[in-house]
């Protein structure tokens, strides 16, 4: 009896892991638009990117302003591979990264090791 219970609990735990890490989709944050027409979003870097999904309109310039608030060297650099951009993130400083997604799609940004990830969804 307890074997069945433990296995049921284990299976549901696996289901939860799959759902939490892979299936559930965060809704994302809509980037604000500044006076000069740049879509701007502030991202706090601490164990991850908050927010980690930024929604923007394609074809218009985007500025992501990163602020790293931890000493963990894992996040010391953010890489936007699709745009060939990267930036060092000194602790506590705002670091802007600018680019223009020409086409609609999802553009990932991540730490150098690819452990922390976020994305810009252009529509």
């Amino acid at each position: 009896m307890d074997v069945i219970l433990v296995n049921l609990a284990g299976l549901s735990l696996i289901g939860l892991i799959v759902w939490y890490f892979w299936l559930s989709k965060p809704t994302g944050t809509l980037a604000g638009v500044t006076g000069d027409g740049v879509q701007e979003a502030f991202i706090v870097v601490k164990g991850g990117y908050s927010p980690d999904t930024i929604r923007v309109s394609a074809g218009r310039p985007v500025r992501l302003v990163f602020n790293r608030q931890e000493a963990d060297p894992c996040s010391e650099r953010v890489v936007l591979d699709a745009f060939g951009l990267s930036a060092e993130l000194p602790q506590g400083s705002n670091v802007p990264v600018e680019f223009t997604p020409r086409e609609a799609g999802s553009y990932e940004f991540a730490c150098q090791m690819g452990m922390l990830r976020g994305k810009v969804v252009a529509t």
Partner: peptide, 29 residues
């Protein structure tokens, strides 16, 4: 700060790595 193409393959794996280990740990139990 740029990426070598080989890392893009690694990135695909590392995104699944830790949750996969968690699942293996539960399955092991």
């Amino acid at each position: 700060g740029s990426k070598a193409p080989i890392q893009r393959t690694v990135d695909k794996v590392s995104g699944y790595f830790v949750p996969a280990v968690l699942i293996i740990a539960v399955a092991t139990f």
